Simulated scan of single mutants.
Amino acid sequence: MKATTDRMLTRIKGIYMYILENGVVTTENLAKEFDITHRTVQRDLNVLEYNELITSPVRGKWTTTTKKVKVPT
Rank of each mutant, 00 (worst) to 15 (best):
M1W: 09
K2N: 11
K2I: 07
A3W: 09
A3R: 14
A3N: 12
T4Q: 11
T5K: 14
T5Q: 14
T5E: 13
T5W: 05
D6K: 15
D6S: 14
D6E: 14
R7L: 10
R7N: 10
M8K: 15
L9Y: 12
L9S: 06
L9Q: 10
T10G: 07
T10H: 14
T10W: 13
I12H: 05
I12E: 12
G14H: 02
G14P: 04
I15F: 00
M17H: 03
L20P: 00
E21N: 12
E21H: 09
E21S: 09
G23H: 10
V24M: 10
V24Q: 12
V25P: 01
V25K: 01
V25W: 01
T26R: 09
T27S: 14
N29V: 05
N29D: 15
L30R: 03
K32M: 07
E33I: 02
E33V: 06
F34Y: 13
F34W: 08
F34N: 06
D35T: 09
D35R: 15
D35Y: 08
D35G: 04
I36N: 03
I36A: 03
H38W: 05
H38M: 11
H38Q: 10
R39P: 03
R39T: 09
T40V: 08
T40N: 07
Q42E: 11
R43C: 04
R43T: 12
D44N: 09
L45I: 12
L45T: 02
V47L: 07
V47W: 04
V47Y: 13
L48Y: 06
L48C: 04
L48W: 06
E49P: 00
E49C: 01
E49V: 00
E49N: 06
E49Y: 03
Y50C: 04
Y50M: 08
Y50R: 09
N51H: 12
E52L: 03
E52T: 03
E52Y: 04
L53R: 01
I54N: 00
T55E: 15
S56R: 13
S56D: 04
S56F: 08
P57S: 10
V58S: 08
R59I: 09
R59Q: 11
R59E: 05
G60F: 13
G60V: 09
W62H: 08
W62F: 14
W62D: 00
W62N: 00
W62K: 00
T63A: 11
T64A: 06
T64E: 02
T64I: 14
T64K: 06
T66W: 07
K67T: 04
K67A: 02
K67M: 00
K68T: 11
V69K: 11
K70W: 05
K70R: 10
K70V: 13
V71A: 10
V71C: 09
V71N: 07
T73Q: 12
T73F: 14
T73A: 13
